[in-house]
Amino acid sequence: MTDATDQLVRTPPTLEDYLHLRAASGLTPKTAVQGEGALAGSWCWSVVRHEERAVAMGRVIGDGGWYFHIADMATLPEHQGRGLGRRVLTDLLAQIEEVAPDGPYVTLMADAPGRPLYASTGFVETAPTSLGMRLER
């Protein structure tokens, strides 16, 4: 259950909060330079603040026309299980719906802990039609 002091905002977290949320929630840690690029280069954000601290976040990268990719879905462990991830995801999808032309293509990479949430909001696996790949160096 969300706390009365939880506030959903559509502004990016601070760089410090972004880096902390990624690392503390189990996502791959990033450098400050990488974080600055993520903060500046995102199409939109949804962040839950608790007592002025970012405790959950997600962002969308994309072209604003037809392609939108949800990234950095993260909730601090001590705030998990309260529906904050669902709140962030629902808000990101609402932001896409508010401005995107009909038929947007919305993707995400689903780590195991998030799959039930994503499936419950309508996301489906794309395999075998397409399979996510990444460049490894």
Score class of each variant (00 low, 15 high):
15 L>T: 11
106 V>H: 14
62 G>E: 08
6 D>W: 05
52 E>Y: 07
61 I>S: 05
110 A>S: 14
105 Y>T: 15
127 A>F: 15
34 Q>R: 03
119 A>H: 15
81 G>S: 14
59 R>H: 00
101 P>L: 11
48 V>N: 07
107 T>G: 13
45 W>T: 01
89 L>W: 04
120 S>M: 12
28 T>I: 08
134 R>V: 07
12 P>S: 04
38 A>L: 09
77 P>I: 05
71 A>H: 05
53 R>D: 11
29 P>K: 00
46 S>R: 01
31 T>S: 10
40 A>V: 05
134 R>G: 12
121 T>W: 10
111 D>C: 13
117 L>F: 15
24 A>V: 06
101 P>H: 02
4 A>P: 15
32 A>P: 03
16 E>Y: 10
58 G>M: 02
74 A>V: 06
12 P>D: 04
127 A>L: 11
16 E>N: 10
123 F>M: 00
132 G>W: 06
12 P>G: 02
73 M>H: 06
18 Y>V: 04
126 T>M: 13
85 G>N: 04
43 W>D: 05
96 I>Y: 02
60 V>Y: 05
15 L>E: 11
36 E>S: 05
32 A>V: 12
31 T>E: 06
126 T>Y: 11
39 L>I: 10
117 L>M: 08
5 T>E: 11
41 G>K: 02
76 L>I: 03
80 Q>H: 08
79 H>V: 03
50 H>N: 09
38 A>H: 04
23 A>C: 06
89 L>S: 12
123 F>P: 01
134 R>I: 05
7 Q>I: 13
132 G>N: 10
78 E>M: 09
10 R>F: 14
40 A>W: 15
84 L>A: 07
58 G>L: 05
8 L>N: 07
19 L>E: 09
87 R>C: 05
32 A>M: 05
134 R>L: 12
16 E>W: 09
39 L>F: 03
126 T>G: 08
77 P>A: 07
116 P>D: 11
40 A>D: 11
84 L>M: 07
113 P>F: 06
35 G>L: 01
75 T>Q: 02
55 V>C: 03
120 S>L: 09
110 A>C: 08
52 E>K: 01
85 G>C: 04
124 V>C: 10
96 I>F: 05
35 G>W: 02
77 P>L: 06
63 D>C: 11
79 H>S: 13
2 T>F: 13
79 H>Q: 14
115 R>W: 11
9 V>N: 00
27 L>W: 12
83 G>N: 12
62 G>K: 11
14 T>R: 02
68 F>I: 00
21 L>C: 03
10 R>I: 09
47 V>P: 01
94 A>Y: 14
35 G>Q: 07
113 P>D: 07
93 L>A: 04
27 L>M: 10
4 A>Q: 14
109 M>R: 08
98 E>S: 15
112 A>G: 11
122 G>C: 06
18 Y>C: 09
98 E>I: 04
69 H>F: 14
90 T>R: 01
130 S>C: 12
11 T>A: 02
51 E>M: 06
53 R>Q: 15
37 G>H: 09
128 P>I: 10
26 G>W: 03
99 V>K: 15
10 R>L: 13
82 R>H: 15
9 V>S: 05
101 P>D: 10
11 T>F: 02
97 E>I: 09
4 A>C: 13
114 G>Y: 10
64 G>Q: 00
47 V>Y: 00
68 F>D: 06
85 G>V: 02
45 W>Y: 15
9 V>F: 04
